[in-house]
Computed example of a mutant assay.
Amino acid sequence: MSKQSINNLKLGAFILTGLFALILSFYFIGKNQHIFGTKFKLRARFTNLNGLLEGNNVLYAGIQAGTVSSMSLINDTTIEVTLLIDKAIRPHIHQRAVASIGTEGLMGNKIVNITPATGNFPLVNDGDLLSARQVVNTDEMLQTLSRTNQNIAGISEALKISVLHINQSKLMALLDDPSIGNSLKSALKNIDRTAYQASHFAGNLNKVVLDVRGGKGLAGALLSDTGMTTNLRTAMINIRQATAKTQKMAVDLDGLVSQINNDLAGGKGTLHLLLRDSTTAGHIRQSLKNIEQGTDGFNQNMEALKHNFLFRGYFKDQAKKKTASSAVKP
Results as ranks from 00 to 15, higher is better:
residue 123 L to Q: 04
residue 127 G to M: 11
residue 105 G to Q: 07
residue 15 I to D: 03
residue 257 V to I: 11
residue 154 G to N: 05
residue 25 S to L: 15
residue 266 G to K: 15
residue 207 K to Q: 04
residue 185 K to H: 08
residue 90 R to H: 01
residue 159 L to E: 08
residue 213 R to H: 06
residue 198 A to C: 04
residue 265 A to D: 13
residue 262 N to E: 14
residue 239 I to M: 06
residue 137 N to T: 06
residue 3 K to V: 09
residue 246 T to V: 12
residue 95 Q to V: 10
residue 240 R to V: 05
residue 130 L to V: 01
residue 125 N to D: 05
residue 40 F to L: 02
residue 201 F to S: 04
residue 183 S to A: 08
residue 136 V to W: 02
residue 287 S to N: 11
residue 282 G to C: 03
residue 319 A to D: 14
residue 203 G to L: 10
residue 258 S to K: 12
residue 242 A to P: 05
residue 47 T to D: 13
residue 305 L to T: 09
residue 197 Q to N: 08
residue 239 I to C: 02
residue 98 V to P: 00
residue 31 K to D: 09
residue 245 K to L: 11
residue 229 T to F: 08
residue 304 A to E: 13
residue 227 G to F: 05
residue 134 Q to K: 11
residue 90 R to S: 12
residue 210 L to S: 03
residue 67 T to W: 03
residue 224 S to V: 08
residue 300 Q to A: 10
residue 223 L to H: 06
residue 262 N to I: 09
residue 186 S to M: 07
residue 206 N to G: 06
residue 169 S to E: 02
residue 232 L to S: 13
residue 271 L to A: 13
residue 231 N to C: 06
residue 13 A to T: 00
residue 21 A to C: 11
residue 241 Q to C: 04
residue 25 S to G: 14
residue 293 Q to C: 13
residue 23 I to A: 09
residue 146 S to V: 08
residue 34 H to C: 04
residue 68 V to K: 00
residue 20 F to I: 03
residue 279 T to H: 15
residue 54 E to G: 11
residue 5 S to L: 12
residue 144 T to A: 14
residue 33 Q to A: 08
residue 21 A to Y: 07
residue 97 A to D: 00
residue 276 R to E: 14
residue 326 S to C: 04
residue 62 G to N: 04
residue 27 Y to T: 09
residue 214 G to W: 04
residue 259 Q to S: 13
residue 294 G to R: 13
residue 144 T to F: 03
residue 319 A to M: 10
residue 44 A to D: 00
residue 117 A to P: 01
residue 149 N to S: 09
residue 65 A to M: 00
residue 245 K to R: 12
residue 72 S to G: 00
residue 313 G to F: 07
residue 329 K to M: 11
residue 212 V to E: 05
residue 124 V to K: 00
residue 141 M to S: 14
residue 33 Q to S: 09
residue 110 K to C: 03
residue 265 A to P: 04
residue 56 N to H: 06
residue 162 S to D: 05
residue 26 F to N: 11
residue 315 F to A: 02
residue 323 T to Y: 11
residue 113 N to W: 02
residue 34 H to W: 06
residue 104 E to F: 09
